[in-house]
Design a binder for these strands. Structure first.
Lengths: 199, 199
DNA sequence: GCATACATACAACCATGTATGTATTTTTAT
DNA sequence: ATAAAAATACATACATGGTTGTATGTATGC
């Protein structure tokens, strides 16, 4: 086949990534072959091996397209020393984004449910690890810490909030049609915040 | 090789399941071959195919050895209409069991992190689904429901508690050496209960 | 004219599943 | 009770396909 222009090449690269995302989501990472991805992208394996070293590299590139949506906002929260209500908004928005963005839905579904690879775990760690760090620092701000219940350290608060969050992600991704995350998000977030704050 | 006695056969069956649990935990389900499991069990693939129809059946049998530790106690909780403090004890114990029983640790680690199969998800659903059902019914008991915060329905309470729990499981299984689950368990449980109960 | 962006062809390897062999155990018939 | 028959609990051998990686071809953009 003929050589493509630079822009066209970049387009096929993206379509390969799209196809990988789709197939990984539908079948799981280990059970989808490069041949299947190639077919879904309308190319052959040759194209995949041209753009990516192997399946592993393709997988990582696919994950790399999604950035943790919370992270930037958490950094801003910390820097601006915003109120805890602002954090609550971030949390609600984050849950809603998972439920409304097909792209995020698929990638996080792959990360949580459709991969057993170590790089998948590493990616999870990279994503949630930084968030926990930022949350810890935020809860350490005296004005914020004072609002926490008596025996809750910043570390514990960050851990609990993050775990609660991951649990909601996880549970909902398993059965997204079973309950409405967008509707329940505020109530679910309120519960954990009530648990963290002093009464 | 010679035929074994009935008891011996049952022993090799168990050793195969043990080996599968070990290898699935260490390498993930899809990346461990039956050959590896056989070697780890000190037998050949012939023995595996004698006791199990295929890898899938072996995987299910391996999962079948662990029953949800919470379920029986939740049923009792509901039947005896015990106080919410009893539920809190169950939750703490459940977390502690994960951290102290190597067997539970491995199997849940496989379920949450080391499989991408649909049967893995189905098993998760079966395990946590019933718990949520029981929790819903329990929170529906008037005396219990009255202790919940104003706008929290029994369904929401069960969902939130279960999600919080799953999140803790998930986070800790990823990095079990990073923090001490046994120590933190009571505090983590207290947080979610404070969030659920009226102040 | 040379590097590019693929398609095509080829080699090699696991992993699975099944078929077969076999030494015992267990059962059955006498 | 004992010998023959049958079933058991595997090990071994083999056939197959699916997947990966690489090597090569090739038309075209630059």
């Amino acid at each position: 086949m003929a050589r493509k222009t630079k822009a066209e090449a970049e387009a096929t690269r993206e379509s390969i990534l799209d196809a990988a995302e789709k197939m990984f989501f539908e079948q799981g990472v280990s059970r989808t072959s490069l041949e299947q991805i190639a077919r879904a992208a309308g190319v052959t394996r040759g194209a995949i091996y041209w753009h990516f070293r192997n399946k592993q590299a393709l997988f990582e590139a696919m994950l790399g397209r999604v950035r943790n949506p919370m992270e930037a906002r958490l950094a801003d929260l910390l820097e601006q020393q915003r109120s805890i209500d602002a954090l609550r908004d971030i949390c609600v928005d984050s849950l809603r984004q998972l439920a409304t963005s097909e792209h995020h839905f698929r990638v996080f579904s792959i990360l949580f449910l459709r991969t057993e690879s170590d790089t998948g775990l590493a990616a999870q760690e990279e994503i949630s690890g930084r968030s926990v760090q930022l949350l810890q620092q935020y809860f350490g701000i005296p004005a914020v810490r004072n609002t926490l219940a008596a025996d809750i350290t910043p570390e514990l608060a960050a851990l609990a909030l993050n775990s609660h969050f991951v649990g909601i992600y996880f549970q909902w991704l398993k059965t997204p049609d079973h309950w409405n995350l967008v509707e329940q998000a505020p109530a679910l977030v309120d519960i954990i915040f009530r648990g963290l704050q002093r009464r």
